[in-house]
Structures are given as structure tokens and as C-alpha cells.
Design a binder for these strands. Structure first.
Lengths: 334, 334
DNA sequence: TTGAAAGCGCTAACAT
DNA sequence: ATGTTAGCGCTTTCAA
């Protein structure tokens, strides 16, 4: 059967306590016994039962993470950043995916809590704040990442959507573009904020806003590339020809580049193009794409540090919102 | 503080046992008390402490998964398939990433075992079988997925690399190609097997093998697209012009398509092109790409079913290897 | 249909 | 530097 503390103790004619002390690296054990114990542990391939430990000590040294999707590069980057940082502090990460479904999210959060995670990190897709209000009772430290239920007071680490739009537009303007087009994304609150960042940048740099340069490129799906191509073609029929195009996604931007090259425009000389997401896969197509990096890794790292601080000092100035800055990665397309 | 069985019991003047029975959906409780208990649970937002339950009952209803990378689409697909199937049976999935590092993998596996997972699923990057030999003692059911440590007898669910190469080549041949080129991947055992699948298909269909049509396209990195372009250019300088090209990755294939179009070749009329991986992102670029689907989702589902069977019946015919067939998804490029 | 007692493997708190 | 006692929250086993 599986090896327990008790087995090692009786093997070595020691008490369970001594073994437990060695296990946890306590110092008040003689070097000799410590060595004996460690060796026997190795021989027997002993593994502490964390369930038992946590039952007694009250913490599991595990942190729960619930993200909307395992295939979303932003969130997997967040997870990577978290895992790195948290592991260094001796914590493990329990990852679950809500598949973008609020009900699955609630279920998974419940599961994580049942599993006694010491803290909970959620990129929430809840539409209402109700569920989290109820949850407030159980005083498990919670941090929202990337997305936050509207108007819910809680710790948050993420990127301001408005900044994303702003950074892209500002970059194009600063490289000399005066007629900056925007292929805007779906009609969601987040996408609207990016759009307002675009508007804000135009405003700050005294560039007139031209409605004709804003194109609805809509949903992310497998036709994104085509949408980019079509949008670019439409843009080129407008009276004012844009000299810069920023896109809601990288794939959209690749479509735009192809369409531009096809019309014998030079990128970036005639028209500069910027994507969003900085997806490794499509960074270097025909003309390597400048793109706004959503800083998922940093979001993860910062969220991890925040959680670890909460976990150690038991109390942190409540409800901090921590915003990480997206940054433009300039390549050949701009 | 947190609500426990005991609290509900004393609240309702019942014994802990009755509450426990309701909690686990046992039938031998009167409908009336059952209702009372359930309501009180809801009111108090009670969540069972799984650590405690597992300590007593010996199983955690959680299954561990260790994959090499959270950003690899194949493995996240596997995870999705697993999560779906396993959740339906009341199990949770503990996901960790080894970051392609054998040592981290061993560490994470140890952690999972300490957390008392009921079974362990590993896409292993171990170079030797030693670690798993030692692990054999603890009789936690193990299933390898996708990758298996060389010559280690154990349950396995995955895709035959050879089949991947075969399927791609056979498809091209069956659509009429006689001169099938291959941009082969890195010099790994898995990539070599794909190559031998290519050779096998040529052989089966009586197509002569031409060494000049095999191009080293090497490592997966951010220059893959460029590699595809260059390889295609090189192919077009050969004496025998290929009428079909299969590629180790989708991105390589996109590069090949672009290069072909650039040389005024029609795809697929003059030259048919097939990628590998069936990555959603780049399925529908200029010419939508035919690609070999690696069936990650199915691998996950099958692995989950296998594990669940092992977990229920306690014994399954030992060391099953279960191979899922990759299938070609035909689009416009072939 | 309900309950009482015991104990899963470990560690906190207090000895010695 | 080592040991003793008690108990974490739950379920198993046996009894009523």
C-alpha cells in the first residue's frame, strides 16, 4: 500500500512528529536523524498526503485559476505567468476552463472552493455580479484577471481595453500617418473601449476623425482573414485613402496586408498596418506584422504576486485594481 | 467561518451522518429531512471539504494531467476532450504544464500524486523510462497520451506519427498528384516517423520516390512561414516540378501557397498543398488550407474513457495502446 | 430511516 | 532534539 509517515516512523523507531518535522524542513532535528529519515523517504518513494496535511493545517498551497478557454492565447499566457511565479513560492495552480459559459464557470469555482484552494483567480464571464456577492461570505482571497464582472469591487489585474486601442493608433500617428483607419471588432463592451481608445488618440494628436475610416469587421471566427481582405478593399474605394490601418486582431491585419500588397501598395511605405494580440504564429508572414502585445504573461505574474502578498500578510489594501500596459511591438508592417 | 457538516447537523437537530447521506445523494433518507437539509445547505452556501472526504474515502474524484505546454494547440485540444468527458462522470481535471522540461515534469507528477489524484495522464517528455519504473510501485492508474517514453509498457492513447504522413501523402496521390514533395520537420523520432509514412504511401501507390522532392524545413519557430516560401522556391528550381506538396506544419504550408501563387502557379490546379495540424487560426488564408487534423479532441476523449473504465472496474486488460486516426480535412488547397 | 463511534494521514500545541 | 495528545471534516462500519 501507499507509504505513510507512520510507516517511516516505526521503521526508524522515531515518532511521527520527527518525521513530519523533517518532511517540512524544520531545523530542530539533529542532522543524523534527519539524514536517516530523508534516506528512508527516498527509498520508500514516500509522498506526503497533501489532503491530510491541508485538513490539519488549513491551507493547501494551491491556487485556483478559472479561465474562459484553454485555446485563447491571452489566457494561456496569463496561466504561464501565474504558474511560474506561484511555483517559485511553493504553490501549485489548479486550472479549469469555463468554456465561456457562466454556468460552467460557477460550477468550476464551486469545485475549486471544495478543493480548498487558498486563493481563487478568475477571468470571469458572469453577466451579473450576484454569484460573487454570495461568494463574498467564504473569505477566500479572490483576484479577477483580464475581465471583471461589471461594477464589482474586488482585486483586479488586467489591461485597459482603451489603452490597447490608444497604443495602436498613437503608434501609427507617430510614424506619420494622418488618416488612420480602424477595423473594429465585435459589438462588445471591451471592443467598444478599444474603439474609444482609438478615438482618444486621434483627439490627443489633433487628427480629425473620419467615420468612413471605421469598418465593422465583426466576430472572430475562421473567416477573419477574409474579412480583413474585404475591409481593405472597401477602404480603398473611399474618397480619403487611409495611410494607416489598425485591426482588432492579428489575422484581420494579415488579410489587410495581403489585400494592400495585391493592390500594389507598399507596406509600410504607402500604408502602415498594425494588428492586435501579437500572436506568435502569424508574426512573420509576408510582411512581418507590427502588433499590440496584450501582456498576458505580465498580467499573470502581477496577479500571482498580488495573490502571494495577500496570502502571506493576510491583509492587503483592499480591492486594488492593477493595470498592465499593452505595448506595441514594431515590425515591418508599420 | 466556513460551514461544516456539523453546523448543518446541529442546526437541524440531526446527526452528521444524515447530512452526509443527503450530500452524497444516498436514497435512505426521508424526503422531508432531505428537503430540509438541502435547503439549509443552500442557505448557508455549504461546500463539502473535498480534502476531508478524500482523506476518509480514499478517492478525490480528480484526475491529473501533465502536458508539455499550455500553448500547444494539440495538447489543449486533448485537455478539452478530457475535461468534457471526465466532468460528465463527476471528475475534475488538474492540469499542469512541464514546459517541455523533464525535471519539471517529474516535479509536477510528484505534486499531483501528493494531491492524491485518482489517476494520472501524462504527455511525457522524459528521455528515459527510469522515473516511471520507480513510479510503478504506487499503484495510481497511469495513461500516456500523445507521447510515450520509449519502450515503456503502459496504457497509451495517441496518434501514430506514421499515419499522419501517410494520410497527407495518400490524399495528394488520390487527387491525382504523381510528384509529391515533402517539407519535413525537425530531426526527431516523431518527425522521422511521419516521413516514413510519406514513404510508405508512395510505395503503396507505386509512386517513385524522388529524394530531390524532400526538403529539410527544420525547426518550428517564428520563421516557419519564410521557410515555407524558401522551400517552395527551391522546389521550383528542381528538374522535376512537384504537383503536390505536403508540409510538416500549417504555417509552412501557408508559406508554400504564397510562394506558389507568387510564381503564377494555380493552387490546387497546378500544385496541390497540404498542411498539418489543422490549426483554426490559419485555416482560411488566401487559399484555404487542406490540413491533417491531429485529432487531439478525440485523443482526449478516448483517454478519458479509458481512465474512467480503469477507475470503475478496478482492472482493465493491461497496457492497452489505443491509436486514433488522423484525418485529412480537405479545403481549397488540394 | 437515523445515529454513535472510530479513524483516514497529517500537524498544532504543548510537553519533556 | 524528540515525543504525546488531540483533532482537522468527513465517511465507513456497525447498531438501533
Amino acid at each position: 500500500m501507499t507509504v505513510r509517515l507512520k510507516d517511516i516512523a516505526s521503521d526508524l523507531n522515531l515518532s511521527k512528529m520527527t518525521i513530519s518535522r523533517v518532511l517540512r524542513g524544520q531545523t530542530d532535528v539533529s542532522a543524523a536523524t534527519k539524514a536517516r529519515v530523508l534516506q528512508r523517504m527516498k527509498e520508500l518513494n514516500y509522498r506526503p498526503n497533501i489532503a491530510a496535511r491541508s485538513l490539519r493545517s488549513g491551507n493547501t498551497f494551491s491556487i485556483g485559476l478559472v479561465i474562459p478557454s484553454l485555446s485563447d492565447p491571452f489566457f494561456t499566457e496569463v496561466a504561464r505567468g501565474l504558474v511560474q511565479t506561484v511555483r517559485a513560492a511553493g504553490y501549485g495552480l489548479l486550472i479549469s476552463s469555463s468554456e465561456e459559459d457562466p454556468e460552467i464557470e460557477r460550477f468550476e469555482i464551486g469545485l475549486q472552493l471544495s478543493r480548498q484552494v487558498d486563493a481563487l483567480l478568475v477571468a470571469s464571464v458572469q453577466e451579473s455580479t450576484e454569484f460573487f456577492d454570495d461568494l463574498g461570505q467564504q473569505h477566500v482571497p479572490m483576484v479577477f484577471i483580464g475581465r471583471k464582472p461589471p461594477s464589482f469591487g474586488a482585486h483586479f489585474v488586467g489591461v485597459r481595453d482603451q489603452d490597447i486601442g490608444y497604443v495602436a493608433a498613437a503608434h501609427l500617428i507617430q510614424t506619420g500617418c494622418h488618416k488612420v483607419a480602424y477595423l473594429r471588432g465585435p459589438r462588445t463592451a471591451a471592443a467598444d473601449l478599444r474603439y474609444s481608445g482609438y478615438r482618444a488618440a486621434l483627439n490627443d494628436f489633433n487628427i480629425p476623425f473620419r467615420p468612413a475610416l471605421v469598418i465593422e469587421a465583426c466576430e472572430a471566427d475562421r473567416h477573419e482573414y477574409r474579412r480583413g481582405v474585404e475591409a481593405m478593399c472597401r477602404l480603398l474605394t473611399e474618397k480619403v485613402r487611409p495611410d494607416g490601418v489598425m485591426c482588432f486582431s492579428d489575422l484581420l491585419a494579415i488579410g489587410v496586408i495581403d489585400a494592400a500588397l495585391n493592390k500594389n501598395l507598399k507596406v509600410p511605405e504607402d500604408i502602415a498596418i498594425v494588428g492586435c494580440g501579437n500572436q506568435p504564429l502569424i508574426q512573420s508572414m509576408k510582411v512581418s506584422l507590427s502588433s499590440v502585445d496584450l501582456a498576458g504573461l505580465e498580467v499573470g505574474q502581477r496577479a500571482a504576486k498580488l495573490v502571494l502578498r495577500i496570502l502571506s500578510s493576510e491583509k492587503v489594501a483592499s480591492n486594488r485594481s492593477l493595470y498592465v500596459s499593452p505595448r506595441i511591438v514594431v515590425r515591418d508592417s508599420s
